[in-house]
């Protein structure tokens, strides 16, 4: 999802009997749905996995501002511009909630920024695609934020207190994002043939990348078992992907748009849709840094960070000077 490639350090699942007393007490708390708070004892693997997961999630929110930011100055009306601006501002907020949650685990904000800028830390593959038309802003809100909600709602119940609380705030705000996207799609779908064509084209390009957001198929996601035992991952990738397809296909039908998958078919028996094979080769290429916009996205973050350096330092110097003056006056 927003954290698609979280390598856990756990070596396979231990039974309660195999755990030492501290770890056993910890696991029993999790099994009893008692939240883990930052200063409490936790296995090193739990801490490390969570730092990776939450920081990837935060980086995704921050980088996720870039594809949409591309259209703020080109939004078709003043209303749409104000709405998009508010949405992108929310994404910055979501990144900040998440960075703070990760910091409670003992990593600093600067360390996380450094990991993003050096390419060591990942962010979601989805933000490495370009936003070519205004309809892409609709498709992102509808599909990308829709997929994000599907993933984030269960994480509200995760075992780590600060992450859970951050997710609750995020989810409260996220539903506006999806609705504003669908609203854009509705207007285009009911518009001129050219506008409808634009909406269809956006769906064509964003459909498969949206399905990839849920991460590799369960058979290949080797770290899931431990994360699920720790309750920092609540559903498998394939479960969530299926749920997303089942929810989204009728929404596309309402718009009168066609989901770009010839294998898509309702399966009465499983009470869900069967759908075609995802191009995992494309997914892994993007994670490696070879997507259409990887360089541009990272470049934009690096530029923002270095352009802002004088500002960050200036404000800090001013703050120190004022503090020193105050002490001298006392």
């Amino acid at each position: 999802m927003y954290a698609q490639e979280v390598k856990s350090t756990g070596k396979g699942l231990k039974t309660l009997e195999e755990m030492d007393p501290e770890e056993r007490a910890f696991q029993e708390k999790i099994d009893a749905n008692i939240k883990i708070e930052p200063k409490e004892w936790m296995p090193e693997g739990y801490r490390k996995t969570l730092i990776r997961q939450i920081s990837q999630h935060a980086h995704s929110e921050i980088v996720g501002q870039l594809p949409e930011g591309n259209w703020i100055t080109r939004a078709p009306t003043l209303d749409r511009k104000a709405i998009l601006l508010a949405k992108v501002q929310d994404e910055a907020g979501h990144g900040l909630y998440l960075y703070c949650a990760a910091e409670t685990l003992g990593i600093s904000r600067d360390q996380m920024t450094e990991q993003l800028l050096s390419g060591k830390a990942k962010y979601s593959s989805i933000f490495n695609y370009p936003t070519l038309t205004w309809a892409d802003i609709g498709a992102i809100g509808w599909l990308v934020d829709g997929a994000a909600i599907m993933n984030q709602v269960p994480i509200q119940r995760c075992s780590f207190g600060p992450y859970s609380r951050a997710m609750i705030r995020v989810c409260k705000e996220e539903s506006f994002h999806q609705r504003q996207g669908y609203d854009i799609m509705m207007v285009l779908a009911k518009g001129t043939p050219e506008q409808k064509e634009m909406a269809q084209d956006a769906l064509n390009r964003w459909w498969w990348p949206s399905l990839m957001m849920f991460g590799p198929p369960d058979a290949e996601s080797v770290h899931s078992v431990q994360s699920m035992a720790w309750k920092i991952k609540m559903n498998t990738n394939d479960e969530l992907r299926q749920k997303f397809v089942d929810q989204t296909v009728p929404q596309a039908e309402y718009l009168g748009l066609k989901v770009p998958d010839d294998d898509l078919k309702w399966n009465e028996e499983k009470d869900g849709y069967d759908f075609g094979e995802i191009d995992w080769g494309e997914f892994y290429e993007i994670l490696k840094g070879n997507g259409p916009c990887n360089k541009e996205r990272l470049g934009a973050r690096q530029k923002a960070w270095s352009d802002g350096e004088w500002f960050r330092e200036g404000l800090m110097a001013y703050s120190k000077k004022r503090k020193a003056r105050k002490v001298a006056a006392e």
Binding site: G93, C100, R165, L315, Y318, R322
Partner: peptide, 19 residues
């Protein structure tokens, strides 16, 4: 409600409003 980074108290209040 959470935390944030800021160079001084005044900026912290401003940022808290936005975040």
């Amino acid at each position: 409600v959470g935390s944030l980074h800021a160079p001084d108290a005044e900026m912290a209040v401003n940022n808290a409003r936005d975040v």
